[in-house]
């Protein structure tokens, strides 16, 4: 593993990107940061700007107005970076599969490394997913690890 990845895994900063979700997953992500779950124990911190982030947490069933913006946000992220899809909507569009405004699931737009199912996933599930992502990067099987410049 390269020095960049070793440093990244020590303290992966996350950026939260809502692509038209119902707020539930977003609240559970913020719940992870508050005293009961406290994901900061693992060095994870919610970054204010996408340019400071290592991991992108995507929630919601991407709608037509959001898709170009999601791509732009992803382009602005410093590489290497990883994408985690949170919630049923981001995984497969869930109940919005028949919606006229939600054409594709997130993994058709961005290279997703970890999927956390649930409507909404509990904070415990989100923490478990984050730990699995870290293991995946250590094994070298993560998608974006090869995108490193």
């Amino acid at each position: 593993m390269s020095l960049k990845l070793t440093a990244l895994l020590k303290s992966p900063w996350v950026f939260h990107l809502s692509t038209g979700s119902c707020n539930n997953c977003d609240i559970e992500i913020i719940d992870c940061l508050t005293p009961r779950f406290d994901i900061e124990r693992f060095g994870m911190l919610l970054a204010g700007s996408i340019k400071h982030a290592d991991v992108l947490l995507v929630t919601g069933s991407a709608n037509r107005k959001c898709i170009p913006r999601i791509k732009r946000v992803y382009e602005q992220m410093p590489k290497p970076c990883f994408v985690v899809a949170i919630g049923e909507c981001a995984l497969s569009r869930g109940m919005f599969i028949h919606s006229y405004n939600c054409p594709v699931p997130i993994d058709h737009i961005l290279p997703v490394d970890a999927y956390i199912p649930g409507c909404p996933p509990k904070p415990e599930a989100i923490i478990a997913g984050a730990v699995k992502l870290i293991e995946k990067v250590k094994n070298g099987t993560a998608k974006k690890a090869k995108n490193e410049k």
């Binding site: 692509t19 709608n63 919005f96 919606s99 006229y100 405004n101 939600c102």
Partner: peptide, 8 residues
Amino acid sequence: YNHRGIEK
């Protein structure tokens, strides 16, 4: 940015 067509 959040429109999902729930009424439909």
